[in-house]
Amino acid sequence: MPTQTRAPQLASAGKALLLPMAIDCLVLGAGQEVGKSCAVVTINGKRIMFDCGMHMGYLDRRRYPDFSRVAPDGDFDGALDCVVITHFHLDHVGALPYFTEVCGYRGPIYMTYPTKALAPLMLEDYRKVMVERRGEEEQFTTENIADCMKKVIAVDLKQTVQVDSELQIRAYYAGHVIGAAMFYAKVGDSALVYTGDYNMTPDRHLGAAQIDRLQLDLLITESTYATTVRDSKYTREREFLMAVHKCVAGGGKVLIPTFALGRAQELCMLLDDYWERMNLNVPIYFSAGLTIQANMYYKMLINWTSQKVKETYVTRNPFDFKNVRSFDRSMIDSPGPCVLFATPGMISGGFSLEVFKNWAPSEINLVTLPG
């Protein structure tokens, strides 16, 4: 049942909720768990679904949010005023084609331009891995993904969008991955902000999250690592580089299972720069396919990156990596040291698992999990 609170309270876990009086919030995923982000908020009579993700740890009905709780009669258009997607990761957008093309939601969907460009790549890659390689039951087709994306309305940062005469939304830069946004929504005198993942520390290719000073009645924020104290970014990067360098110097191969969008580009930039400084000739590879497409989009979406990347772009595109090249499946057993980025990041199947099985028996090789 939707929750209606009469005093502010905080619920911690995958999402932290600060709920004021007279606002209903139905959490369908990422409440006290990581994955399947989906929250339906009713504010002054307007009902908004924030994110529509899947849970990567389940293959049964728990994979998707329980959409029957949104509209028991199946009339999703009548039950929702809009859907808002924060970024392209599957735990935030993975259930969207199922919701629109199978459940039948036909209302407006909002996301940023990069998210609209990159989400179909993530969804199609997931479909291929699950259906064509693992033989799982097909949840949605390639055509479903394309038809779903046709319904999406792309928005720019800080662009105020009038969904209807009463409801307006606005996107703010969230860092995390290219195109990720925090969304502000206002109905009458009531306002809220919903965040997916965000990053307050700039990295090599993205800036830190930025948002205006706002008067809010409700804040729903990602809080997965809220209580985690980690070493400095410099320390973590240095340990990573030292481990990789030690392995290849000893003739070993380094497998870096990673998601093709976001972390792969960040680590490619880190290693490419280190290889230049250390004058290393060991090849760095990334598995072909999705990552190649991703890098192409990253080059096109340079305005969504950090200020440093934009300044570098004047002389060269920082996503044209000097020391990184494509990897062919036939090269798995090739002799000599190398570094390989392979998807998926959780080694649950696909190419990264295939490479892991081939390289794991040798003690001189290394697998590093960047998350």
Rank of each mutant, 00 (worst) to 15 (best):
Q9S: 07
S12T: 13
S12W: 05
A13G: 15
K15L: 15
K15N: 13
L17A: 10
L19W: 03
I23C: 12
C25F: 00
L26G: 00
A30N: 15
E33W: 04
K36T: 01
C38Y: 00
V41W: 00
V41Q: 01
V41Y: 01
N44S: 14
G53E: 09
G53L: 03
H55V: 00
M56T: 08
S68H: 13
R69A: 02
V70I: 15
D73S: 13
C82N: 08
V83Q: 03
V84W: 00
D91G: 07
V93E: 12
A95T: 00
Y98K: 09
T100H: 06
T100E: 07
E101P: 02
P108V: 05
Y110I: 12
M111T: 08
M111K: 08
Y113A: 13
L118Y: 04
A119E: 08
M122P: 01
E124D: 14
Y126F: 15
Y126R: 11
K128R: 09
V129K: 02
V131S: 05
R133E: 15
R134N: 10
E138T: 02
N144T: 02
N144I: 01
D147S: 11
D147I: 07
K150S: 09
I153M: 09
V155W: 05
D156E: 15
V161F: 08
Q162Y: 13
Q162G: 06
D164M: 03
S165T: 14
E166M: 14
Q168H: 10
Y172P: 09
I178T: 15
I178V: 13
A181Y: 03
F183Q: 05
F183D: 01
A185C: 10
K186F: 08
D189W: 08
L192Y: 08
T195V: 01
D197C: 07
Y198C: 05
R204D: 07
G207W: 12
D217F: 00
S223K: 03
S223W: 04
A226L: 12
T227R: 14
D231H: 13
D231K: 12
D231E: 14
S232W: 10
S232F: 11
E237P: 02
E237C: 11
R238L: 14
C247G: 09
A249M: 06
G250C: 12
F259W: 05
F259V: 07
G262S: 09
R263E: 12
A264N: 05
A264C: 13
Q265A: 15
L267Y: 08
C268I: 10
M269Y: 05
D272P: 10
D273H: 10
E276A: 14
L280S: 06
I284K: 08
Y285T: 04
S287G: 11
N295F: 11
N295E: 05
Y298W: 11
I302F: 13
N303H: 10
K308Y: 07
E311K: 11
T315W: 10
N317Y: 06
D320F: 05
F321Q: 05
N323P: 06
F327V: 09
S330M: 07
S330L: 11
D333W: 06
S334D: 15
V339G: 09
F341D: 01
A342N: 11
T343D: 14
S348N: 14
S348F: 04
G350S: 00
L353N: 05
V355R: 04
I364R: 10
L369G: 04
L369N: 10
